[in-house]
Every structure is written in C-alpha cells, then in structure tokens.
C-alpha cells in the first residue's frame, strides 16, 4: 500500500473520515462530531450520505486518513460495519484505524471489537472521550506505519 508514505507521522494533523456506511439519514450526530473533531485540530472528511462500503474504503485510502469513524443509528451496524472491514481486508488495508459509534447495544460490542472496531460509543458519550479515543488510535496507527516504512 502506498498510503501513509508521505505523511510526516508525528506532526501532521490527525486525518479522520466520518462515514455512515448504509442507508441511514440520521446525520445530526455526525455533523456535531465533524465540528468537534475540527475544533480539536483534526482534518475531517465527511463521506456524504449513503456511501457504499467500497466508497468508504476508497475515500479513506485516497485521502490517506488515519482513522475511519463509522456511525449508524439504524440498527444495521453489525452488517454494515463488517462490510467496510471485509473490503479493507480484501484490499489489504491494515494501517487505518476503524472506530464505531451510534445506537449500539452492549451485546453487539464484542462482535465489533473482534472485527477491530473500537470505541463503539453510544448516545450521550461526552465529545472529549470520543476525541481522546480517536487521538489514541491515530497515534497507534502512525507508530505502526512508521515501523512498516522505516
């Protein structure tokens, strides 16, 4: 994979792709996150509504993001988040972190974690907790990339 090669790992702002990877128009939360991430100094890209999982992964690669932040409020997270992970695996993308959120029942969280999706924040989570988690995952990813491309 070419992505990440040209990034100055430690200095450049964290780059996040926000996406709702299914048929789900509830976008109030994702706009709040976009603003909050930007105010926290991150580069934010929003994938727009109804992106296919392929579009999400392609955008993440082309834009060279550190983190994909997925959000769904329609109950389809298990299927739809997995579709994104499957395509990442198919394309051999393993140096982008995937973080989840939305209306996610506790019992679904282990399955998501197992796919490598962390966070899985529910309603009412303070923005600071989400931002800190994104930063932590981005740091991990950059370290991974640094080791790989050294």
């Amino acid at each position: 994979m070419e992505n990440g090669k040209n990034r100055k790992y430690t200095e450049a702002p964290i780059k996040v792709l926000l996406a709702k990877p299914a048929i789900d128009g509830h976008d109030r939360g994702i706009f709040v996150l976009a603003r909050a991430f930007r105010d926290a100094g991150m580069d934010v890209i929003y994938a727009g509504l109804l992106p296919t999982p392929e579009e999400v992964v392609d955008t993440a690669i082309n834009e060279d993001v550190d983190v994909i932040a997925l959000s769904l409020l329609n109950g389809a997270h298990l299927t739809a988040f997995k579709n994104v992970i499957d395509i990442m695996n198919k394309k051999g993308v393993h140096d982008i972190a995937v973080v989840g959120g939305g209306i996610i029942p506790d019992e679904d969280k282990p399955a998501l974690e197992k796919m490598g999706i962390t966070g899985n924040f529910g309603p009412g989570t303070p923005l600071k907790i989400i931002i800190d988690h994104i930063k932590k995952r981005a740091r991990e990813i950059r370290k991974l990339r640094e080791n790989e491309y050294r």
């Binding site: 299914a22 048929i23 789900d24 109804l50 329609n74 109950g75 389809a76 299927t79 739809a80």
Partner: peptide
Amino acid sequence: DMPTLYGYDCDNRRSTGEVGKC
C-alpha cells in the same frame, strides 16, 4: 424501514441488514 424510505426493494444489495429494522 430505511430501504423503503429510499425506494429500494428488500432484495437490493444495499438493503442487506436493514430490512424491517427501522
């Protein structure tokens, strides 16, 4: 449900996982 609201049938690939959910 979401597929109906966007004019997709239940057998469309995009509808997977969303049929009857919302």
